[in-house]
Structures are given as structure tokens and as C-alpha cells.
Write a protein that binds this DNA or RNA. Structure first.
Lengths: 341, 341
DNA sequence: GCGCTACCTGATAGCGCTACCAAATGTGTG
DNA sequence: CACACATTTGGTAGCGCTATCAGGTAGCGC
């Protein structure tokens, strides 16, 4: 009987087990799995067979430690319920998974402090890249990122001062364009209702609306914002409050679809004709805007496209094939003109 | 000059650096961070200070390798857009993060093959636990899970044959209860429209509806299912097609809120009075059901509660404090009676 | 044949951390 | 003061894998 004072392995099949069983060296097995082209056909097949036979699953921790590289990518999102996040993740993940990366997802609930804390935990995994939402981060977050050798990607908003890579859209422009469009349609008293008022996205949208109003000599006086998450109540309340304040408002811009939904219900309750009495539009439309009655004019942002561009751009960076490629990608937006205006 | 032929470290601050700088042994630093109560106050403070000074971040891979344990939990969800997933993740993650675990999230798009493939990749991280959605998995998936020493948790559906832990609700019962409720309200010609028809959740809902109809001597003849994801079109189409088939239907049950949304629009288009002409209900209601006009009677499932119970139960298992605790938790559901019926 | 390159394979030495033991230090008892 | 005993600390040997280098084999031209 052996002295087994020292801890033994976990009992799982290791690379060494495969090597012994296949009658080759450990390195050859490692190469057969990681860089198959460096191994002769004969041995590669043999090894592949033994791998399947024994049900070998590589130990990621050991690999990461030995190589100093890691195949994990940290993704910190502010929310999982927001449309952008839900639409973004699957496409992003799919492409990265195919390239052999794992997503580790964290959730900051729109707090830069929580983002920072999460980041420092996630960095313990030594991720190949860190993906952050938005452009607002704590100083410490930025410092941690610069100290780590991880690639950094900021998504959602176009941000001139981005840390490294940046894929997003310009919320100032889209809001401005919507407002201009409404003005061109003959609407004049255009109100704005937005949620997550402390986020820079909303601030940009608000500024876009203001700018378009001012350039047409209209007063951007009627708006309502809340720092809560977008919800149906805000839409109902917004319509109610602003109409009380100024009964002859003729159009509304909502930052999010959920808010527009509440506004639509409120207008139904008041038996207001859309768009005759009032126009409703939103800056973040998708299925509801497209299907409700009447259909809502909205800005549509293609989050699937954003996810794909972001994933591809990130992979370029990780493989080092991104010489001369732009660090910033603006995925644009689409103004969808529909019945509500 | 030293010969530095052998690769050097990554350049990051290591535990050894901290130990040297604090003038203590490496083990003491390790303990100070992992089991602080085993280190004297003086040294613990000293070490903590050096850690902050140097900005030391532990290398998770090394720790996992050395200890054979891992603080990652693999979560494989079928979708990121489904309400259940969006609502589930944040609460689940929050509790587990606080307990020091990291979530690694994968996405199977409702395919058990993809689930299996994802699982085998995720197992390379040697996760402490694997969380799966639903009760349907490939044989290979079950085998992989049994071979790994990871705890296994299946969420969403109550499943008598669960692999290990199980937290969810009974979709057969909730559907049956909704049908019984409608019958008690005097509705008789009750139709069913559901999405994701190949998922066991939908099959259970369909069976619940059928059972309740049959026990009241009503024929469960009018139903429409689609294997697509729930969407607004299916609601509009479902109402249109089934009313064509049987014009005097007096009630509908929809598996998902999105479908009910489409149905509601279709009824508005047809100027049908709800619930006088027709009742609309859904089995997976949340904000829309509660806020739309008229408000929809629906089954509400508390996903936040599900996430919390699931996380707590899992932690009990991981810390081994779950002797005598049930492996299965039914979180129930609530029938919310509203204006639409 | 020899020298040369090109390719394949394997032995070795870590990657940074923690389990394990052993040693050192403090604490209380006879 | 010697002794057992608990508490705190440190040295050592891996965890399973890969980078690196060295050795081996094959193919080619002279």
C-alpha cells in the first residue's frame, strides 16, 4: 500500500491519463487538442479516440494557469431585463463561444460602484477581455482595467473617450432626428418622457430633443424624467401630468417602449385619437411598437447587429488581427415611420 | 544578468509578492484572505494593507487548481429574452455573488443538443454547480453531470425525476386551475393558444387545460400551438384562426403574455368587447397583463422568488448544510383575477 | 555518404495557489 | 520548571496543464 498522505487528484480523468492510455507523451496530447495541425494524423486520431473513450474533459483552470491566458470574457451589464441586454447577449455569446470563449456575466444594476466591485472579482479570472455597458465608470474601474492586460470593450453608446474598443450608437443623434422628423410632420408642442434619467444615454437623448427643438425656435419646456427603470406607469403618468401642465401638446417622445406602452393605454382611456389628437413615438422600439394599435413611429436600434459587430471586433483584437481597424464602431439606428405620427 | 529562458510570470502581483512585501510566509497570506479567523489580528491587518497597496488580485485559476474546488457556477438557459430568464438571473446572481460564486452563463436556444455541447465546455471550468432549465436533457447531458462532482439544479418546472435539486412550479396545475376558474365564471368554449410547443412546459399546460375541460364534460377541441418563441403574431393569428373554426368561442387561454398581447390587438381590431364577447387570459402574466386595457386575468409566477429559493437551496447544498432538506421546492403560482374575464 | 532543413515528439520546469505536515509560539496545569 | 495542549506560522509538494527546449526522424541536395 502506498503512503497517500499527500492529496491525490480529484479523481477526474487528466491529460496524463489520456497520454498513458494512448501510449504517448503528455505534450502530444495537449497539442493534439489545442493545435492539432502540429500532430501527425495517426497520433491525432489515436488520441482523439482515447479522449472520447475516457470522457476526458480538460481542466480549464490548469490550462489557464500554465499558459497565462484565459478563454473567459467578463461581461458586466447593468440589467438583464432591459431590451438591450436581452437582445445583446445571445448573439454576442454565440460568436464568442464558437471562437472558444466563455462568457462570465455580472450584473451591476446601473451602479458604477457595483460595477467596480464586480470587476475586481471578475478580474480574478484573468479574463481575456472585459465588456462594459455604457461610458460611465468609476476612476478605480478604469484603473483596474488599465492594470489588467485584458482587452476592454464598451458597448451601447458611442463614446469619444472610450477606454479601448467601443461599439454602439449615437443616442443624441437619434433623439434629435426623431424630433426633427416630428417637426417636419407639423408637430410643434413636443414633449419628452424618459426613464433612467441619471444614465448618460438618457441625458444625450434629452439633449438631442432640446437641440432639435431650439434649432426650430420651439421651446423644449415639457418633459418628465424618472430615474427608475422604464415602466408602463411612467408612460401613463407622463401623459397625464404633462397634458395637465400644457393641454395642447401634440406629440410625445418616449425614451423606452415600455413607457410608450403606458402612454398608449392612457390615451385609450382618454379616448384620444392617435395621431390626430396626439402623436406618440419612442426611441427604443421593437416588437411592441411594430405590432400595437396604432403602430408606433420609433427609432429602432439593431442590438443583434451591435452584438455581432462587437463580438467580431473583439475577436479581431484578441487574435491581434486588428491593425489599422477602427476602435470605434457606430452601428447607427433606423427611424421607422409608422401610424402613430 | 539572469538567464530568463524559462517563461516568467504574467507580471501581475502574486500572492508571493504580497508575502515578501509583508514579511510573512505565502501560506499566511493565503489564509489571511481565505480564512481570516485563522490569522492573528496583527498580521491580518498588515497583510490586508499590503494587498491594497499592491493592488493584489488573486489568480482564480491557480486557486481552483490547487484546491480542486471552484467558485464558478454554470447556468445554462434556453433564452435570454424569455421573461423567466430575464427575471431569474439578477436575483439568482446576486445571492450567489454575495456568497463568493461567479456565474458562467450559457445559452442553449431551447435545444438539448446545444445544451449538451455547452455543458461539456462549461464542465472544463470544473464548476461547483450546474444549473439547468427545465426537465428535458439528453442522455449524455445527464451522464456528464453524474460523472462530474458538481451539484445539479433544475429550475422552472417541477420535475419528479429531477437529477438532483429542483426548484420550480407546476405548469399542469396552473393551467388546470385557470381553466377551472373560467368554467366557474360561466365560460364554456375555451380555446388554448401556446408557443414553444415542443417544450414540456407547454405540453403540461395543454394537458392541464384538457384535463379541466374534460372533468367538466367540455370538449378541448380548439387549440393552436406553434413551436416558435412566443410572439404577438401568434396571438392575432390564434384568435383569427380559432374564431374562424368556431365563431362562438367565449374564452382564450394563452401560454405567454406576448401572445395575449397580440390577441388583445386583434380583438381591438374586430371591436370585440372583453370580457363580454370574449375572455382573454394568460398563464405567464406580469406587467403587461396588469397594466393593459382591460387588465388581463393571468397566472403569475414569481420568478424572483424562484431565483432566491433556488440560490439559497443551492448554497445549502454547496456548504453541505442541507441534510434533511427537501430536494424539490415548488414555489407555486397565483391566479390573478382581473377585468378580462 | 554528409549536412541541412523541416517536422514531429517528449522530458522538464514551472504557472500561482492551497493541502498537508511540521515547527514555533503561547497557555495552562501539576 | 517540565509537560501537555491549543493556536499561529511557515516550508514543501503538488494541482493539471503548457512553454520551452532538446532529441529524434524523415526528406532533400550535393
Amino acid at each position: 500500500m502506498e503512503t497517500l498522505r499527500k492529496r491525490r487528484g480529484t479523481g477526474r480523468v487528466t491529460l496524463a491519463d489520456v497520454a498513458k492510455s494512448a501510449g504517448v507523451g503528455a505534450m502530444t496530447v495537449s497539442r493534439a487538442l489545442r493545435t492539432p495541425e502540429q500532430v501527425s494524423d495517426k497520433l491525432r486520431d489515436k488520441i482523439q479516440q482515447v479522449v472520447e473513450e475516457l470522457g476526458y474533459i480538460p481542466n480549464q483552470a490548469a490550462g489557464a494557469l500554465a499558459s497565462g491566458k484565459s478563454d473567459s470574457i467578463a461581461l458586466i451589464l447593468p440589467s438583464f431585463t432591459d431590451k438591450i441586454c436581452c437582445d445583446f447577449i445571445p448573439f454576442f455569446q454565440e460568436i464568442l463561444n464558437q471562437a472558444g470563449y466563455q462568457l462570465i456575466i455580472g450584473y451591476s444594476s446601473y451602479s458604477i460602484t457595483q460595477e467596480e466591485q464586480l470587476l475586481s472579482t471578475l478580474l480574478a479570472n484573468n479574463p481575456a477581455a472585459v465588456v462594459l455597458f455604457g461610458s460611465e465608470h468609476s476612476a478605480q474601474t478604469v484603473k483596474l482595467l488599465k492594470n489588467s492586460q485584458a482587452a476592454v470593450l464598451e458597448i451601447a453608446e458611442i463614446n469619444e473617450l472610450c477606454i479601448d474598443l467601443n461599439v454602439g450608437t449615437d443616442h443624441y443623434q437619434s433623439s434629435k432626428e426623431m424630433t426633427r422628423y416630428l417637426i417636419k410632420q407639423g408637430f410643434q408642442k413636443i414633449a419628452f418622457v424618459g426613464a433612467r434619467s441619471e444614465q448618460s444615454i438618457l441625458r444625450k437623448q434629452l439633449r438631442g430633443w432640446q437641440a432639435a427643438m431650439l434649432e426650430n425656435y420651439l421651446a423644449p419646456d415639457h418633459f418628465l424624467t424618472s430615474n427608475d427603470e422604464p415602466n408602463i406607469e411612467l408612460g401613463s403618468e407622463g401623459v397625464a401630468k404633462l397634458l395637465l401642465q400644457q393641454p395642447d401638446l401634440d406629440a410625445f417622445i418616449f425614451s423606452h417602449e415600455e413607457i410608450a406602452m403606458g402612454a398608449l393605454f392612457e390615451c385609450q382611456r382618454r379616448v384620444l385619437q392617435i395621431p390626430k389628437d396626439i402623436a406618440l413615438t419612442c426611441l427604443d422600439g421593437s416588437t411592441f411598437s411594430e405590432k400595437c394599435i396604432p403602430r408606433l413611429t420609433s427609432i429602432e436600434i439593431n442590438y443583434a447587429k451591435m452584438a455581432k459587430k462587437a463580438a467580431r471586433r473583439l475577436l479581431e483584437r484578441l487574435t491581434g488581427e486588428d491593425q489599422g481597424t477602427s476602435k470605434q464602431i457606430d452601428i447607427g439606428f433606423k427611424l421607422c415611420e409608422r401610424a402613430s405620427s
